[in-house]
Simulated assay, not measured.
Amino acid sequence: MKPRDVATRSRELQDLRRLDPDGFFRKTFTLPVEDARAQARDFLREYPTGGYMTIVEHWRQLPDGQIQFTMRRLPCAD
């Protein structure tokens, strides 16, 4: 097994450990408003809604004006 294969497999296993019991991968961001919008767009572009069931699951504005939001998606396309 090549070192690159080991690294790839390790990364895949790490992603699987991050899955919640419901099978979805969640990632939470805390960013200024414009950066939050850009990050959400990038995430949706990288994991299209149709194949990954990607959504903004939760969001809120913090007292300092930043946006905290959680993106949810399936770990792989159907």
Results as ranks from 00 to 15, higher is better:
2 K>M: 11
2 K>L: 11
3 P>C: 03
4 R>N: 13
5 D>Y: 15
6 V>G: 01
6 V>F: 15
7 A>N: 12
8 T>D: 09
8 T>Q: 12
8 T>I: 15
8 T>Y: 11
9 R>V: 12
9 R>A: 15
9 R>W: 11
11 R>A: 15
11 R>H: 07
12 E>F: 09
13 L>S: 07
13 L>E: 13
13 L>T: 03
13 L>G: 08
14 Q>G: 10
15 D>H: 12
15 D>A: 13
15 D>M: 15
15 D>C: 09
16 L>T: 11
16 L>G: 00
17 R>L: 14
18 R>C: 07
19 L>N: 03
19 L>S: 05
19 L>A: 03
20 D>S: 07
21 P>I: 08
22 D>E: 12
24 F>R: 04
24 F>E: 00
24 F>Q: 02
26 R>C: 01
26 R>E: 06
26 R>W: 06
27 K>G: 00
28 T>C: 05
29 F>V: 00
29 F>R: 00
30 T>F: 00
31 L>G: 01
31 L>W: 12
31 L>C: 03
31 L>V: 04
32 P>F: 03
32 P>A: 14
33 V>C: 06
33 V>A: 05
35 D>N: 04
36 A>H: 02
36 A>N: 05
36 A>C: 04
37 R>C: 04
37 R>D: 12
37 R>H: 09
37 R>T: 11
37 R>S: 09
38 A>D: 15
38 A>V: 11
40 A>Y: 07
40 A>K: 02
40 A>I: 08
41 R>E: 14
41 R>S: 10
41 R>K: 14
42 D>T: 06
42 D>M: 11
42 D>K: 08
43 F>V: 00
44 L>S: 03
45 R>K: 06
46 E>Y: 11
46 E>N: 09
46 E>L: 09
46 E>D: 15
47 Y>P: 01
50 G>N: 12
50 G>V: 06
51 G>T: 06
51 G>D: 12
51 G>M: 04
51 G>H: 08
51 G>S: 07
52 Y>N: 01
52 Y>T: 03
53 M>K: 13
53 M>Y: 13
56 V>R: 04
56 V>F: 05
56 V>T: 07
57 E>F: 13
57 E>V: 02
58 H>Q: 11
59 W>I: 01
61 Q>C: 06
61 Q>A: 08
61 Q>I: 14
61 Q>M: 12
62 L>A: 07
62 L>T: 08
62 L>K: 13
63 P>V: 01
64 D>M: 05
64 D>A: 03
65 G>V: 06
65 G>E: 01
65 G>A: 10
65 G>H: 07
65 G>I: 07
66 Q>S: 14
66 Q>H: 11
68 Q>C: 07
69 F>T: 02
69 F>M: 00
69 F>G: 01
71 M>F: 05
71 M>Y: 03
72 R>V: 01
72 R>N: 04
72 R>Q: 08
74 L>Q: 10
74 L>C: 00
74 L>H: 04
75 P>W: 13
76 C>E: 10
76 C>D: 02
77 A>D: 06
78 D>E: 13
